[in-house]
């Protein structure tokens, strides 16, 4: 059983919803990421999503776009991101880590080499935003062969046939994008998400995460009753941008925000 499957099984038994915070690796600088990952776990994260910076993150909003720019200014590469996961694993062998990024840096690294290196570093899932299953990249198969779960997005505009196809290719969990837009956008409609997730659940037994537009504890709490996992990205990255220049305060502020999300979500499920 993969670390992701194990974690979701645990949570299901405990009647809890996974909190999945996202940070961009290398933001604000390379040395900040591993301490941030530990702080996120301590504050109540169940799964970590680590963004691999890309120069042209088309599906991301301005907050994560700028985080990528900060990370790239320090020359953060995919190899650096894998080194961060490896270092994180020295102290934490239980929290699943999912890489989220774009296809081009993976291909530049070498698809096969990437699958091997992620497994070696202790990565559990890989979400390649701009690689739909139709493109038949060998990546998903290579990852599965190494025990890494290929994670895919589902959108409000995904039709029934593609929903089926994506769910067949995916492993670990599927990630439902709650709105039409980019990461960090507003206007999340919880009732609509609930209706859509019922459709998704008919297509797959995989846990269903939701994200894109979860900005505060209130929204996270509302979604806790609906989804198996709640992904929070831009709202955390916003705080990294705000406090990035003072390390101690950065860790305190991000930790406090994630604790607040955790408490709100747990309270909602009681």
């Amino acid at each position: 059983m993969s670390r992701l499957a194990e974690r979701f099984a645990e949570l299901r038994r405990a009647g809890r919803t996974a909190l999945v915070p996202y940070i961009t690796a290398g933001d604000p600088d390379k040395s900040a990421s591993v301490p941030l990952m530990h702080v996120l776990v301590k504050a109540g994260a169940d799964v970590l999503e680590l963004g691999v910076p890309f120069s042209d993150p088309m599906a991301d909003g301005p907050v994560i776009q700028r985080a990528c720019e900060r990370a790239l200014r320090h020359g953060t590469t995919l190899a650096d991101v894998l080194a961060m996961v490896r270092e994180f694993r020295h102290k934490d062998t239980r929290t699943p880590v999912v890489l989220m990024g774009y296809l081009n840096p993976v291909e530049a690294f070498g698809t096969e080499a990437f699958a091997a290196a992620t497994a070696e570093a202790g990565v559990d899932g890989v979400l390649t935003v701009d690689m739909p299953p139709e493109e038949a990249s060998p990546l998903a198969g290579l990852l599965r062969a190494r025990g890494i779960d290929p994670v895919f997005l589902l959108a409000p505009t995904t039709d029934a046939a593609r929903l089926q196809r994506i769910c067949e290719t995916a492993a670990g969990f599927v990630y439902y994008v709650t709105l039409k837009g980019v990461t960090g956008a507003a206007n999340l409609d919880v009732a609509e998400v609930r209706r859509r997730l019922e459709v998704v659940r008919r297509a797959t037994r995989l846990p269903v995460g939701v994200g894109f537009g979860v900005r505060d504890a209130r929204t996270a709490a509302q979604l806790a009753g609906v989804a198996d996992a709640v992904v929070v990205g831009s709202a955390i990255v916003d705080r990294v941008a705000q406090f990035g220049h003072r390390r101690a305060e950065l860790l305190t502020q991000v930790g406090a925000f994630v604790s607040e999300l955790r408490q709100a979500m747990d309270a909602a499920r009681v």
Partner: peptide, 14 residues
């Protein structure tokens, strides 16, 4: 060529 876009764009592109 192909269609290497995020799932959010697959519907509009189709």
């Amino acid at each position: 060529g192909g269609r290497f876009v995020a799932e959010t764009l697959m519907g509009p592109v189709e």
